[in-house]
């Protein structure tokens, strides 16, 4: 029996258009950077500004990488900020509970390390729950993660009783906001490590191929002998782990943890992922594109901060417009190619 194949309006030539959009993005990053530098060289090109940028974007950059996994798998993940906050809260609780003033440095590091591993596991477990809801119970990804977002932040709420947790040991804050070798901010190091790992997984490993093919067609993947449940769960676990890193960075930067922090990150991360050329229907997308889109957003918003007369809320306006314009540009370039 042949059913007429319904072509997704966005699928098809996404692969070649994504390659184009990477080129365009690279150009955009350079142009943005140059324009900002020329307009406000005394502010933009200072080490303190570049420093600030390097501390900011890893937080949502990590979440965007997590969303990328979910979207390439053919779904979406709205719960990652919830996971990030939950891990931040638990990390804060554990650190406050276990560290004592009289402890030595090595003991501190040991405890920190255990907490770190625990938090990563929590991120993975939360991601696993998402994956199970989606592939086991067959709940549409958007709904499942919408629900689990409420669930994760709800658990955070119960733990904190709705208030912020403060008083994280100073050693942790110093470590999280410090610099490796004196010049590489720790959040940036974590981000770069995550980017490298994601790149390896997406472009160099068998899992990346499995994930992209499953995102293209779940049914065809089943008939090709693939274990879709496992692939979906793994993709969401990767997202959960990335989100937990983001939570740990946030905790260090804010010196506190709250269950409703960073609620704008969800929208922002989807924006980044689509800007980065990931196909919203699944199956196509590159780590390169997502990283470049993250940089574009950071350059743009840091640049805007240089102009005190411009309201920071205009960023939102600009992001929305950029997303639409980029999608429309991709649309026309694909159309031209099809002809």
């Amino acid at each position: 029996m042949i059913k007429q194949f319904k072509q997704m309006p966005v699928a098809g030539n996404w692969a070649c258009s994504a390659r184009d959009s990477v080129k365009r993005q690279l150009l955009l990053v350079v142009v943005l950077f140059a324009v900002m530098s020329i307009l406000k060289p005394s502010l933009f090109l200072t080490s303190s500004n570049l420093n600030a940028m390097a501390y900011q974007f890893p937080e949502y950059g990590l979440i965007a990488l997590g969303v990328m996994f979910a979207m390439i798998a053919g779904g979406i993940d709205l719960s990652l900020i919830g996971i990030a906050n939950l891990t931040a809260i638990l990390m804060a609780k554990l650190l406050i509970l276990w560290t004592r003033e009289e402890m030595s440095g090595i003991q501190n590091i040991g405890i920190f390390f255990i907490c770190f591993l625990l938090c990563m596991m929590i991120g993975a477990v939360c991601g696993m729950l998402n994956g199970c809801l989606i592939s086991g119970l067959k709940i549409p990804a958007m709904l499942a993660t919408l629900g689990s977002l409420q669930l994760f932040s709800g658990i955070g709420m119960i733990i904190t009783k709705g208030k912020a947790i403060t008083g994280v040991p100073e050693a942790y804050v110093r470590m999280g906001t410090g610099k490796l070798f004196g010049f590489l901010p720790v959040p940036l190091v974590i981000y770069m490590a995550a980017v490298f790992a994601c790149y390896y997984i997406m472009s160099r490993s068998t899992f990346g191929m499995r994930l992209k093919l499953m995102g293209t067609s779940q049914k065809a993947a089943l008939f090709a002998g693939q274990n879709n449940k496992r692939t979906t769960v793994k993709a969401h676990m990767a997202g959960g782990i990335l989100a937990s890193f983001s939570g740990l960075i946030m905790l260090a930067r804010m010196n506190s943890a709250r269950p409703d922090f960073g609620s704008s990150y969800t929208m922002q991360s989807i924006l980044i992922v689509v800007l980065g050329g990931v196909d919203p229907a699944g199956g196509f997308g590159t780590v390169r594109g997502v990283v470049l889109a993250t940089l574009i957003l950071q350059c743009f918003s840091s640049g805007l901060n240089m102009f005190p007369t411009i309201s920071p809320y205009l960023k939102q306006l600009a992001w929305g417009l950029t997303l639409l314009v980029v999608m429309i540009m991709n649309f026309y370039s694909r159309q031209r190619k099809a002809e």
């Binding site: 042949i2 059913k3 194949f5 699928a11 098809g12 030539n13 996404w14 692969a15 191929m209 499995r210 992209k212 093919l213 293209t216 067609s217 049914k219 065809a220 993947a221 008939f223 090709a224 002998g225 693939q226 199956g283 196509f284």
Partner: peptide
Amino acid sequence: LSEGLFLPQSINWNVGIS
């Protein structure tokens, strides 16, 4: 079309997947 192939993906991947 729906069960056998990953239509928009490369021939190489379509053959290699299993």
